[in-house]
Deep mutational scan, measured.
Amino acid sequence: MDETGKELVLALYDYQEKSPREVTMKKGDILTLLNSTNKDWWKVEVKITVNGKTYERQGFVPAAYVKKL
């Protein structure tokens, strides 16, 4: 869990989004888990830094590609 009590997951593999509802992740990324009720796709939040500014983006990743921490 992070400092706000949200559950975290670890990306076990790289994943490139294939639709606007998904998010890209790299092996080793730590993501915030938002919803894991679907056994195949989990909703996560990723933080992306571009030119020194951090953005948060929500989307789905394959559940088999992440592990709860």
Rank of each mutant, 00 (worst) to 15 (best):
E22N: 05
Q16Y: 14
K6R: 13
K39R: 13
L33Q: 00
T24C: 05
Y13M: 13
E7C: 10
Y13T: 09
A11Q: 01
T4D: 10
V9P: 00
K6H: 11
Y15W: 11
V61S: 00
V23L: 11
K67T: 12
E56V: 15
Y55K: 08
E3D: 15
A63F: 02
D2A: 15
R21I: 13
A63I: 04
Q58S: 15
V61K: 00
W41R: 03
W41T: 02
S19W: 06
K68I: 12
E56P: 08
K53M: 13
M25F: 09
D14T: 05
K67V: 15
G52C: 08
R21A: 14
K47C: 09
Q58N: 08
E17T: 08
F60M: 09
D14A: 06
L8F: 09
T37K: 15
K6W: 08
L31I: 08
K53E: 12
G5P: 12
A63S: 13
L10F: 09
V44C: 04
L69I: 13
A64I: 13
V44I: 05
I30L: 10
E45W: 06
K26T: 08
P20R: 09
T54F: 10
G5M: 15
Q16G: 06
P20V: 09
G59T: 01
T54A: 11
D29L: 03
K67A: 10
K26R: 09
D40Q: 15
P20Q: 10
S36E: 13
Y65P: 00
R21G: 14
K39S: 13
L69Q: 06
R21Y: 14
T4N: 14
V66M: 05
K68G: 04
G52E: 06
R21L: 11
Q58R: 12
W41Q: 02
V9H: 02
W42Y: 07
T54R: 08
V61W: 00
N51G: 13
Q16S: 13
N38E: 11
P20N: 09
G52F: 07
E22G: 13
K68R: 13
Y65Q: 05
V46R: 13
N35C: 09
L12V: 08
L12Y: 03
V66N: 00
L34S: 02
G52S: 06
E56C: 11
R21P: 04
Y15S: 01
V66D: 00
T32V: 15
T32Y: 10
V50C: 10
K6C: 09
T4W: 10
A64T: 12
Y65S: 08
N51W: 06
I48H: 09
A11P: 02
V46S: 09
L33C: 06
D14M: 03
V46I: 14
V46C: 07
E22C: 05
G52V: 03
Y15G: 00
Y65L: 15
N35I: 06
K53F: 10
K6L: 13
M1A: 15
Y15C: 02
D2Q: 14
W42K: 01
W42A: 03
L12A: 03
K39F: 09
K53G: 12
F60C: 08
V66I: 08
S36Q: 14
M1L: 12
N38H: 14
A11L: 02
G28W: 05
K43F: 14
L69G: 03
E3M: 11
N35K: 07
L8I: 08
V23E: 00
D29H: 05
Y55P: 02
V61Y: 00
M25V: 11
M25Q: 01
W42S: 02
N38Q: 09
L69F: 11
I48G: 06
V23P: 01
G5Y: 12
D14G: 06
W41S: 02
K18R: 13
Q58Y: 08
S36C: 09
L8W: 11
V46F: 06
K43Y: 13
N38A: 07
K18G: 08
T32L: 13
K27C: 06
L12W: 03
M1S: 15
L33G: 00
V46T: 15
D14W: 03
T49W: 11
D29Q: 09
W41C: 05
K47T: 15
G5S: 13
T24W: 03
E17K: 14
L33R: 00
K26E: 07
Y55M: 14
A11I: 02
